[in-house]
Design a protein around this nucleic acid. Structure first.
Lengths: 126, 126
DNA sequence: CTGAATCCCCGAGGATACTG
DNA sequence: CAGTATCCTCGGGGATTCAG
């Protein structure tokens, strides 16, 4: 529960509300992997399942649903037999790649520094 | 557990390993709020606790520890009575602000689109 | 004041089986 | 093929208490 003084300091938490919603998706392991998997073009359900090793059907469905709800991907059903469903990034979803890749490049660029810092920290502490 | 065919498709998951480590921190609610709280300058423990409404002592401690281990912040102890500990962003921590703010600006810029997409989705579905 | 330690709960998410 | 339904566990994280 938010304490009583929340109204006195709303700026930080409230201002970040929409940002955090995005961060929850961006920080989500499966979402990021799916965005990357969909960069090349539309893909089918089981195709994505194979492209993202380790994901379960459940999480694939849930993540795709969430991303579709956020308008990041589209879901197109072809009424064939067997059924066929294609997922594709929307313009919005593609535009998300840029800032996400900025984070990714920061991570790659500073990977060594972070590893060194961790090694230093672990050496001093247990 | 990663399935046996992990070795056959290592690129996607493995290439993202360091990135995901960062994303776990960037996507972390408390980490982001702490980075923002520390932007203005060094702050003390209880000062941060007040600045980030809703955070518990436990999570504040754990998050600060993690960020210190990653080399994002420094922890300086002043052997006074009562004890006094100041936390501050490192150069690395400050450099993280840029890509994080890129995400933030994307979120703000596309907030309306996302809300609209969600409203559309919710109108069609339950 | 700055933590460490403890308890506990709840929900994300994995495994499995079933359906249109 | 593309999901849905069900069960279950595992750990993140909140509340509380103790310590230096």
């Amino acid at each position: 529960m938010i304490p009583d003084n929340a109204a006195a300091t709303p700026s930080l938490l409230d201002a970040c509300a929409p940002v955090r919603a995005i961060l929850n998706r961006v920080g989500d392991k499966w979402s990021v992997l799916l965005v990357m998997a969909l960069c090349a073009g539309p893909r089918r359900f089981n195709d994505l399942k194979r492209a993202v090793p380790g994901i379960t059907q459940r999480m694939l469905t849930l993540t795709l649903r969430g991303m579709e709800r956020d308008g990041l991907i589209t879901r197109e059903v072809f009424p064939t037999t067997p059924p066929r469903v294609e997922y594709a990034l929307t313009e919005l979803g593609r535009s998300l790649r840029e800032p996400v890749e900025a984070i990714g490049q920061w991570a790659v660029a500073n990977e060594a520094k972070i590893a060194a810092a961790q090694a230093r920290y672990d050496a001093v502490n247990g």
